[in-house]
């Protein structure tokens, strides 16, 4: 495993630059196909509304994957991620026109043994926290 970030170079509180990810309906259709999760609440507005949602919502796993990408882009080698968990606190609502945006930020919360660190993530859409308790354990160089 060859992480691009050195354990010695980070401290508790080290921030990873925030990023914004766009998500639209086509992304959700593609994700449905690749993941096998064809729940229509992720692509049919009438179904989403019929079950009480404000509109089509992103797959929680799509949002989680963007958080994962944020961490793996920072560390370079995705194999350095040894543990990744989230709680889905609020759905990412994806309107037909314009889609939605996800703002993700993170910082080193803890340094563990064996060059591992805990990265705590924050993910928001339309000002709402969409992930809570989002943490990745990453093995650095």
């Amino acid at each position: 495993m060859t992480a691009n970030v050195k354990y010695a170079d980070v401290e508790v509180g080290t921030e990873i630059p925030a990023r914004t990810f766009a998500v639209d309906r086509a992304d959700l259709v593609r994700y449905a196909g690749a993941s096998g999760d064809f729940n229509p609440i992720h692509w049919r507005e009438s179904v989403a509304k019929a079950v009480g949602l404000p509109n089509v919502i992103a797959h929680g796993m799509y949002t989680m994957a963007q958080g994962g990408r944020y961490v793996t882009d920072w560390v370079g080698d995705p194999g350095a991620v040894v543990d990744y968990g989230v709680r889905f606190s609020s759905p990412v609502v994806v309107p037909d026109e314009g889609g939605a945006t996800l703002e993700i930020s993170g910082k080193v919360e803890k340094k563990l043994d064996d060059n591992k660190v805990v990265v705590a993530l924050t993910a928001r859409s339309e000002g709402q926290k969409v992930l809570t308790r989002a943490k990745a354990v990453v093995k650095l160089a």
Binding site: N39, H59, G60, M61, G79, D83, G85, F88, P91
Partner: peptide, 17 residues
């Protein structure tokens, strides 16, 4: 009832990639 299901939490704990 799958139509009423939402995802609450998810975690992946790796032994190796």
């Amino acid at each position: 009832n799958f139509s009423m299901v939402v995802h609450g939490e998810q975690r992946f704990e790796y032994t190796r990639p």
